[in-house]
Design a protein around this nucleic acid. Structure first.
Lengths: 204, 204
DNA sequence: CATAACTTACCTAAGACAAGGTAAGTAAGT
DNA sequence: ACTTACTTACCTTGTCTTAGGTAAGTTATG
């Protein structure tokens, strides 16, 4: 009677599965409570582990947070590539679609929204991470928008840098109101209104 | 030799002075660390008190936070009245001046920015406070903007409600980037660009 | 290919130290 | 005499982390 073999897996498999499960529950918990509010015990329990079991895979809470963030950035940038292609490399349209997608993952939106706010303190573990992230993203988008301006897809009376800052600001700001009252705020629709303004349409 | 009389004050004065000092240091600490990250000990020390000394004036950390927020709202709404008047009740211009003023008080901007993000969690002590606050503010602004639309000061191709949401979103979103890199982001200038868009000027 | 030596993935127990809050008392003001 | 503004000492709880051990999986060797 050797019923003892349902999870007969190789070590590498177990490790990968565990780490994935931890990242998933850490993502959720950080999203709901932020870094400071999240407890290792909660994350561990959600991953069916004890606290030390969790710490075997990630040596500290800070390490865990950074892994969560890096993983998200990896996934998101892949998604962006695909979205860009799908929209014929029209940058503003791709961004609008990103916002639409964000509406399906409120947890992740909240994760970044809260962590960005927390991380403005210089002693926050993700402080550097987010500053670099904004700089990088803005840099890339400026290029894309300058190109779109040349093609006449985007209004040219304002510098690309300005447009990028405004676009990100609108994205972040709409997220706040949407997270507070998801049913009241049509985040993607409102973002498209802004994108239209940046394209040069006034309607007036 | 009765040198012992520098702080010879009446009880009412001492109480008021103490409470003010506490509110001030609590505001700073909450701004830097958020509600969960702020420690009563830090706040107490910054107010030259022991922890129980602080708790004599505010019975709990949560009470203290709520007092801080209410106090801020009181001061800010007074300021808004004055600003509105000064701008001949042109609503968008008054908002732009508010953003300009905000650039002189980064601590307070960070306070609200961080607490709003934290408070999206339903179990946060300020959860209701901020939801009500956004609803109230939006309600008031919709009226003001609808009026401005009738006067031709603001574009009329979009409903007032949309414009209000976009305006607040831009305000919140610019704050994030400005807090991260104050020297790089001209928050007030960029906000005026947005206000111009909402007035109907395209420049294109 | 079998078994010893090692590594990995955990667990229980407990340390270490915050952090919010209470109890009880003192000194000053009314 | 009574209230107010505190203080010191302390309690409780929570939270990240370490110590030390067990059992399963992996590699090296005879």
């Amino acid at each position: 009677m050797k019923n003892t073999q349902p999870p007969r897996r190789t070590q590498a498999e177990r490790t990968r599965a565990s780490r994935e499960k931890i990242i998933r529950s850490a993502t959720e918990t950080f999203a709901q409570k932020g870094f400071r509010g999240a407890k290792m015990a909660d994350i561990a329990k959600a991953a069916d582990l004890t606290e030390p079991g969790l710490l075997h895979h990630f040596p500290s809470k800070t390490h865990l947070l950074m892994e969560v963030l890096k993983e998200r950035d990896r996934v998101d940038s892949e998604r962006m590539q695909v979205t860009l292609q799908k929209n014929g490399y029209r940058f503003l349209d791709a961004q609008a679609e990103l916002v639409e997608h964000n509406q399906t993952v409120p947890g992740l939106v909240q994760l970044f929204n809260l962590l960005v706010a927390e991380s403005i303190s210089p002693d926050h573990p993700a402080h550097e991470f987010f500053i670099e992230r904004y700089q990088r993203e803005r840099g890339q988008c400026i290029q894309a928008i300058a190109l779109a301006q040349k093609n006449g897809e985007v209004r040219s009376d304002l510098p690309a840098e300005t447009l990028v800052i405004l676009m990100f600001a609108m994205m972040d700001g709409l997220q706040v109101q949407w997270l507070m009252e998801p049913d009241k705020i049509d985040m993607a629709g409102l973002f498209r209104v802004m994108m239209d303004m940046l394209k040069g349409k006034t309607g007036q």
